[in-house]
Design a protein around this nucleic acid. Structure first.
Lengths: 406, 406
DNA sequence: CTATTTTGTACTAATTACGAACAAAATAGG
DNA sequence: CCTATTTTGTTCGTAATTAGTACAAAATAG
């Protein structure tokens, strides 16, 4: 039961039903392909005549295509329909603290080329480097399809409407108009998004290994920071000032370790990679000190996971402690939002088999209901490049989204 | 950008545009009345002809009515339109631990009659008592209008779809099919909802003293428990198992006081009325002990607020400490969801002028962004009967909600 | 009294969903 | 091999609905 916003509603026109049904067909084909026209008519409880007309429209726009006829037990054999994704391309860009990844991929998120270079923190120089690389990618893959847009994922708060990076502490950016700058430099439409939301969008629109695409879930990323992409009713929660999802700063203890945000006892101060590493090193977490030490020692969370696997007790303990705190944090999300599913991303996800029992136990301790405690959690290793898939989703999603109405 | 759920979508028919536009008109009149047909045409950017046709339909159904013509600077004077709410009635029921309130009100939430009786915790007996009272209310107010439904608010988790109370610790209920039982006993359609969500719905649909009706906010209730009604994109967040909104059980300290839920250090264990009272009494919070002591002493949170106002230092300190913890909890909500607005309900709201500075300071300490720290908070005193207004909203809302689509 | 402005209605045209009929393409059974 | 049956996909007439235009109604200004 949704309320109509009487200030920014969208009224229906003569072509509204057509737009809606067209989009439903497109999504049905996308998620259940291959599908025949008759299948669509049955699923939508509509006449086959209507389907023919709408499918013709989608075929003319080359949003879908007709495959071969297929065997059927009796009667005329159906011609199957598929969405066209193979030769619709996009460029995904994932700017991170040390490296920037740039990927050419199709609309299903299947990578064609994946490159990587050292991040340039000066925005103008980064834009220019990106523009050169985007151009090169397009030139050298002309045969593969048309590039329809760029998805840019940054580690920080972004404003969808203005296309600005509001605040990205790792890069030292504040209020940088990245979207328009990159769009101008490349001549392509650019979508910008922060990392956790991008990861959530990837699952929402591109699915995972043939899994069903969920409409109510939270994607939690544990990396240098701890954040979340929240999806409710098939829609991302961005918040009034575009800063929703900062679950990393709910407190676990009011007088716990000092967090980089200035407060104390934040979930992030217990579970970020930095926190786990300083715990492993027996150091106190601090804004400058820890990072410096880490850069000098060259130690990463991945190393600690490896050492824990190799049987080093100190590493194992550091990670298990992180897991326990993370479980308490996840329980809070479960109690607050009762999502149908949780995703866990970030480097720590690689240690899922080791941390799952601890996380589940912590959740059981604090979850209010048995159903909540049983919330499925899927870990996604960083090697799957969820951010880049999210970038692909950014470009592909508008094609498939429900029309804005009422 | 919403994703279409390919399993339970609603496809558009020939009459879909009409339904949408009809509903937009109804809501425009509701929130901006009085409005003329020409006003509607301008606001909707549509021909006046269309408006005439749709308004005629709404007039025929008696959803709206035509008022007197009104002065205009030039030209023909418009006939103003209003929604019909005065003679559309509903019964709101608020079941609480000690008392149950039952109200006859119109579709704007204006009360006609308000009664109160001692809560009967045995479900069947309560249903029978309620049925008698509902019948009596209807009989003795026949002239005032038609009763179109009942809104039932209970202190606990409810399942919207099955109409069952999943768990109401204060009443000792578990899986009680209240909706259907009350519907059968009264012959009226019944809507059931938990308290915080009902309060949120009240603000969403019935507004507050002429204020704008918000579409993105969180209503936090501090009472025997601490809960929240979350509204995102004009829609209530219920969660996968209907248990979203339990913000009372995010931890403030992992090793804080034991909460009635079994965990330790929950926000609720610091800020519920029970927690404030035990702090005032210098007692430790416990499931049975505290409640017993309170019933013997007869002391309520309202008394403590009064004593604090009268200058009693111990009472003042107890409440300020609650305020501080509550502020930390609210900061978590702000960081996690970035709502456009917060509402604070429950008995504690009566002390708003005293607790606001402390709450705001705690929020400033923990909010990640300046915009978040400045989130407007509106306190709603319990004397406004927000639960009963919410019950009214439960019955009235379906009339005004956006049609389900795509 | 007339021109102008504004509101509300009536009528026609264009678009679109709906439903039924039909053509196409296959299998099953005598 | 022919015919009945089943299933798919298209075509076309009908009904519903928006969109646009003309017009009547009701007021003011000069």
């Amino acid at each position: 039961m949704r309320k109509i916003d009487t200030r920014r509603f969208v009224r229906a026109t003569r072509s509204t039903p057509r737009e809606i049904n067209r989009q439903i067909i497109l999504n049905l084909v996308r998620e259940h392909q291959p599908l025949s026209r008759a299948d669509l008519a049955r699923r939508m409880d509509i006449g086959r005549g209507m389907i023919t007309s709408l499918v013709d429209e989608l075929l003319a726009e080359e949003a879908i295509y007709e495959g071969a006829t297929v065997d059927a037990p009796r009667g005329r054999k159906p011609k199957m329909l598929y969405v066209r994704t193979r030769d619709r391309l996009m460029v995904g860009i994932d700017v991170r603290f040390s490296h920037t990844f740039i990927m050419l991929a199709d609309f299903s998120g299947n990578p064609v080329v994946l490159e990587r270079f050292d991040t340039i923190t000066e925005p103008a120089a980064l834009i220019s480097e990106l523009a050169t690389r985007v151009q090169r990618l397009i030139e050298s893959n002309k045969g593969a399809g048309t590039v329809e847009g760029i998805g840019l994922v940054v580690p920080g708060m972004t404003d969808q409407r203005s296309g600005r990076v509001l605040f990205a502490p790792q890069l030292g950016w504040r209020d940088v108009p990245m979207r328009d700058a990159l769009a101008e430099a490349t001549g392509l439409p650019v979508q910008i998004e922060n990392a956790p939301i991008a990861c959530a969008l990837a699952h929402m629109w591109l699915g995972q290994r043939g899994a069903e695409m969920p409409t109510d879930f939270v994607y939690v990323t544990v990396s240098d920071g701890v954040g979340a992409g929240i999806v409710v009713n098939g829609e991302v929660v961005r918040g009034a000032a575009q800063t929703a999802g900062e679950f990393g700063h709910i407190p676990l203890s009011m007088d716990g370790p000092r967090c980089l945000c200035g407060a104390t006892g934040c979930l992030e101060a217990y579970t970020s990679n930095l926190a786990t590493l300083s715990r492993y090193l027996g150091q106190e977490l601090s804004a400058t000190g820890t990072r410096k030490l880490l850069q000098e020692s060259g130690l990463t969370i991945t190393d600690v996971i490896a050492r824990a696997r190799a049987g080093e007790e100190r590493a194992r303990a550091a990670i298990q402690e992180t897991a326990r705190y993370l479980g308490i944090g996840l329980a809070s999300i479960i109690n607050a939002l009762n999502p149908a599913q949780l995703f866990l991303g970030g480097e720590l996800a690689a240690a899922w088999s080791e941390i799952e029992p601890t996380i589940r136990e912590a959740i059981r301790e604090r979850a209010l209901t048995a159903a909540g405690a049983a919330t499925p959690i899927v870990a996604e290793p960083a090697s799957d490049h969820p951010r880049l898939r999210g970038a692909a989703a950014l470009v592909a999603a508008p094609t498939f989204a429900a029309p804005k109405l009422a």
